[in-house]
Computed example of a mutant assay.
Amino acid sequence: MQIRTLLLAALISTPMMSLAAEKIVVINAISDSGIGPIIGVIKFSDSDKGLIVDPDIGTLTPGEHGFHIHEKPNCGVAEKDGKKVAGLAAGGHFDPAKSSKHEGPEGHGHHGDLPALQVNEDGSATRAMLAPRLKLADVTGRAIMIHEGGDNYSDDPKPLGGGGARVACGVIE
């Protein structure tokens, strides 16, 4: 993990701090046992083209990961079909229009889709991205979720892009 992440995480005594028109959110690993250690931070800020999402995260598996805004500001475990599920307390993807469609960050489906998170061979993710249909006000009071696998921005062949289990999360306060 980069030094800037360690310094930011050490300075943040709450899950998030806000600075003018930006928010910095602490990201924790999650599992069916609950919320685990801090693995990085994500800075959110508005631009005239949409929401800038700037991660500084480590210890993820290399490759592409599904990356979404979820409805509820909770990264905890919840039960589904009698089993504990990591991050399920965050609810589903942010979908203010109730479209129930997964069409990617520029599609006409739900607004929770972000560009896929690209993780380097060393397990770090540091490439900023743009969510053109979102603003900081839209994501405040929600959760940011990282899934174990990639995202095809479709509900076929698997629902919600096929990203699989939820592996990391942060609350955007």
Rank of each mutant, 00 (worst) to 15 (best):
M1E: 07
Q2F: 14
I3V: 10
I3M: 10
T5I: 04
T5Q: 08
T5R: 05
L6E: 03
L7H: 08
L11I: 06
M16T: 05
M17Q: 08
L19G: 10
E22Y: 04
K23I: 07
V25Y: 00
I30Q: 01
S31I: 08
S33C: 11
G36I: 15
G36C: 13
I38N: 01
I38Y: 07
I38D: 08
I39G: 00
G40A: 03
I42S: 06
I42L: 11
F44R: 05
D46F: 06
K49M: 12
K49A: 14
V53S: 10
V53T: 11
D54Q: 14
P55Y: 08
P55D: 09
L60G: 01
T61G: 06
G63Y: 09
E64S: 05
H65I: 00
H65A: 01
H65M: 03
G66Q: 03
H70M: 11
E71L: 12
K72R: 15
N74D: 14
N74E: 13
G76L: 08
A78T: 13
E79I: 15
D81N: 14
A86P: 01
A86G: 06
L88I: 10
L88P: 09
G91N: 12
G91E: 09
G92S: 09
D95K: 11
D95I: 11
K98R: 14
K98Y: 13
S99F: 07
S99C: 13
S100F: 12
S100R: 10
S100L: 15
K101H: 11
K101N: 13
G104D: 00
E106N: 13
E106H: 09
H108I: 12
H108G: 15
H110I: 01
G112Y: 04
L117V: 02
Q118T: 08
V119F: 01
E121D: 10
G123Q: 08
S124Q: 13
A125L: 07
T126D: 11
R127M: 12
A128S: 15
A128F: 15
A128K: 15
L130S: 07
L130I: 15
A131L: 13
A131C: 12
P132H: 14
K135E: 09
L136H: 04
L136R: 09
A137W: 10
D138P: 09
V139F: 05
V139G: 03
T140G: 07
T140N: 11
G141C: 08
G141T: 06
A143R: 03
I146R: 02
I146Y: 05
G149C: 03
G150A: 02
N152L: 09
Y153A: 00
D155P: 05
D156N: 13
P157K: 04
L160G: 05
G162Q: 02
G164M: 05
A165Q: 14
R166N: 08
R166S: 07
V171A: 06
V171H: 02
I172K: 01
I172T: 05
